[in-house]
């Protein structure tokens, strides 16, 4: 099964799941979700039919694993942001993403990473008084 077909099937399945959920909403809150989820299912079905009909007609390009790696870094970043702190986790996440995307100049990236995270940290905490996690660094 191609990726495109998988997406089409997932859209139908997701739509049906949401339609069932919408059915369980009580009272006056129900009609609009039913209409929206119903439309989703119909459209997803039409899209699936179209995808099957065109199957193989449009060439599909494969994707590298960069997006997957970046998502992994991001999830780790979000989880560690609080315990480790903004400065460290941001600088590390920045370095990792830059590296995944093919940057090979570690010293330059490191300087940029530190300056960027420090700059954002100062601007947000000092200028906008928005709290960012301090984490392990004693500030």
């Amino acid at each position: 099964m191609t990726a495109r077909l998988a997406v089409a099937v997932a859209l139908v399945a997701g739509g049906v799941f949401l339609l069932v959920q919408a059915w369980g909403i009580p009272g006056g809150s129900r009609p609009v979700p039913l209409v929206i989820c119903g439309a989703w299912v119909l459209l997803a079905a039409a899209h699936l039919a179209q995808t099957v009909r065109e199957h193989g007609a449009r060439p599909e390009s494969g994707a590298g694993r960069e997006p997957l790696l970046i998502v992994a870094v991001l999830v780790g970043y979000a989880i560690l942001l609080d315990p480790v702190g903004y400065l460290v986790s941001t600088a590390v996440a920045f370095l990792l993403v830059a590296r995944i995307l093919g940057s090979r100049s570690l010293p330059r990236d490191a300087v940029v990473a530190v300056l960027l995270s420090a700059g954002v940290y100062l601007a947000f905490t000092q200028l906008l008084s928005i709290r960012l996690p301090q984490g392990v660094l004693p500030l």
Partner: peptide, 17 residues
């Protein structure tokens, strides 16, 4: 872009402070 932002932020911080 960063340098621009930092410089401008610094300027504004200075004024506000």
């Amino acid at each position: 872009k960063r340098r621009v932002i930092v410089a401008a932020v610094a300027a504004v911080v200075a004024t506000v402070v």
